[in-house]
Design a protein around this nucleic acid. Structure first.
Length: 489
RNA sequence: GGUCUCUUGGCCGAGUGGCUAGGCACCGGUCUGCAAAACCGACCACUCCGGUUCGAAUCCGGAAGAGACCUCCA
């Protein structure tokens, strides 16, 4: 049963719409995955983390979601010109590997990063190379329907012809004339007829490494057709949600719509969702600009712009504090704020089991819970959810201090609300410091017990010496009411 | 050049007409041998200039600044 009424922003209509799946409670969700010719950077990760939250929430409120996220492992050219090799082949030459070794290497790396960020795996993760047949079939159909043509073994999509019966620029709200104005004039090196035409199939040169036979000779697929073929294969000619980064909207997604429409005469997607970019000093993080952070650089702090390392959940929390459609600016200060905030959230969560209940309750737990759902239902407004969770944090701490009361039923509701939103929906998890089977932890307990003894004997010179020596090896001791704790600085 | 978007307190970031999120920092307090931590409290901002309105961060017009797309990128 669907328990909530969800609104989401549809790029196609440029407004929020009530989400009504085509075959409720089934939901088809497709997200453009990475092109695995290099490491995913943090900006890439943001999109997948955002859609992980979407996927989690849709499931939470009762939908049965088929989440398809592809791996682009062939055919992604540097430009639209026929240079013979795609990104994989180029990288393969650079790293002296087989193209498929490149694909394997970076696919594994991508999966690692996704797992570190605690994202759920998609239901299906199809690869472009595994769906060459489907792509060829789709291209054949587009040619049959008269919207594509062949030139020297390469197949181009005829945008101007398509535009006569369809609105090519609908996703970005642009007219064909405007698009034509912004495009360079053909310089005679291309075989294509129209300036906006794009390749569906690219003819292989003798030196091309990754190529497949087709009715038009040996070649490889264009980037856009891959997503169209894979999404329709697993989700149908028309499916519910298609997501991706905003940078894909103007070209990739616009062409996906055109291809599907030209193939099956129906709009492929009911709701288009686009996530915004991660920026560094206000400028978009991207591979080409060279301002991308790799996840492991962030975790270790091994980067000139980073003052220290940040844990994966700190980063995920940092991202969840901004709305997915807003740009998010990356800075040390913001990351440190996120780190402390998340720590406070978890600290309050762990207090939940220790609270004393009262007969009455002066905490509006039910309203806060509703506010959390309202926020998610309003186009996945995670920042508002977090603001509400911190309202619960305040209450938890006040009850713990004996300043507020909570009833047993409100406490249960609070526990469930915290659990559902922190873990199930926002996808955070608790991170433990120790990875050495507790050896360090055991040693530290000994040291702290010893220090406690000298403190009780009021030998503060000795206890301070222990604390100072530990500080030298980056261990901070914190004395609380119920004993001392330690952590790495 | 064309199209579009954005401009919120020290920092990050919600918020589409009145009730002025949240986190972090700063400040005050509690606790503590001290320090740190933790907790509580306080802190009321919306680029500028006009307009609409009883009332605008929020709507309209203009200016300035920044960014995105148009060309590979989540």
């Amino acid at each position: 049963m669907i328990t909530e009424k969800l609104q989401l922003y549809n790029t196609l209509s440029r407004k929020k719409e009530i989400f009504e799946p085509i075959n409720s409670p089934l939901v088809g969700l497709y997200v453009c995955g990475p092109t695995v010719y290099s490491d995913v950077h943090l900006g890439n990760s943001r999109t997948f983390i955002s859609f992980d939250m979407v996927y989690r929430y849709l499931k939470h409120i009762g939908f049965k979601v088929r989440y398809v996220r592809n791996i682009t492992d062939a055919g992604h050219l540097e430009g639209d010109r026929d240079e013979g090799d795609d990104k994989f082949a180029k990288k393969a030459k650079l790293e002296q590997l087989e193209p498929m070794e490149i694909v394997q290497k970076y696919t594994l790396g991508f999966h690692d990063v996704m797992s570190i960020f605690n994202t759920l795996p998609p239901s299906i993760e199809p690869t472009a190379t595994g769906h060459i047949t489907e792509q060829i079939e789709m291209i054949k159909k587009i040619i049959e329907n008269g919207f594509a043509y062949e030139a020297n073994g390469t197949i181009y999509f005829d945008v101007e012809k398509y535009s006569k019966t369809n609105n090519y620029g609908e996703l970005t709200n642009r007219k064909l004339e405007e698009l034509l104005e912004g495009t360079r004039v053909l310089d005679g090196q291309d075989d294509k007829k129209g300036r906006l035409d794009f390749a569906l199939w690219i003819s292989a040169k003798p030196e091309t490494l990754m190529k497949w036979p087709s009715p038009w000779g040996w070649g490889f697929p264009g980037w856009h057709i891959e997503c169209s073929a894979m999404s329709t294969k697993y989700l149908g000619d028309t499916f519910d949600i298609h997501g991706g980064g905003m940078d894909l909207q103007a070209t990739h997604h616009t062409n996906e719509i055109a291809q599907s429409q030209a193939c099956s005469h129906v709009a492929p997607v009911k709701y288009w969702m686009h996530t915004n970019m991660l920026t560094v000093n206000g400028v978009r993080m991207s591979k080409s600009a060279g301002n991308g952070f790799l996840p492991h650089e962030l975790f270790t702090g091994d980067h000139p712009l980073l003052e220290k390392g940040y844990s994966p959940m700190t980063v995920r929390f940092f991202m969840a504090q901004a709305h997915y459609r807003s740009t998010l600016d990356f800075s040390n200060e913001a990351l440190q704020a996120a780190e402390k905030g998340l720590k406070r959230l978890f600290a309050a969560y762990s207090l939940l089991g220790k609270l004393t209940v009262s007969e009455t309750s002066d905490s509006p737990v039910a309203q806060i819970r509703k506010s959390c759902y309202d926020a998610m239902n309003d186009d996945f407004n995670s920042p508002i959810v977090i603001a509400n969770l911190f309202e619960l944090v305040r209450i938890i701490n006040s009850v713990n201090d004996g300043k507020e009361k909570i009833s047993s039923s409100d406490l249960d509701l609070m526990k469930d609300t915290m659990k559902v939103f922190i873990f199930d929906i926002l996808g955070f998890k608790e991170e433990s410091e120790s990875s050495d089977n507790g050896v360090v932890d055991g040693l530290m307990q000994l040291v702290l017990q010893w220090r406690q003894q000298v403190r009780e004997a009021k030998d503060y010179a000795a206890s301070d010496k222990i604390r100072n020596e530990l500080a030298k090896i980056n261990i901070v001791v914190k004395d609380g009411k119920d004993g001392s704790r330690w952590e790495k600085s």
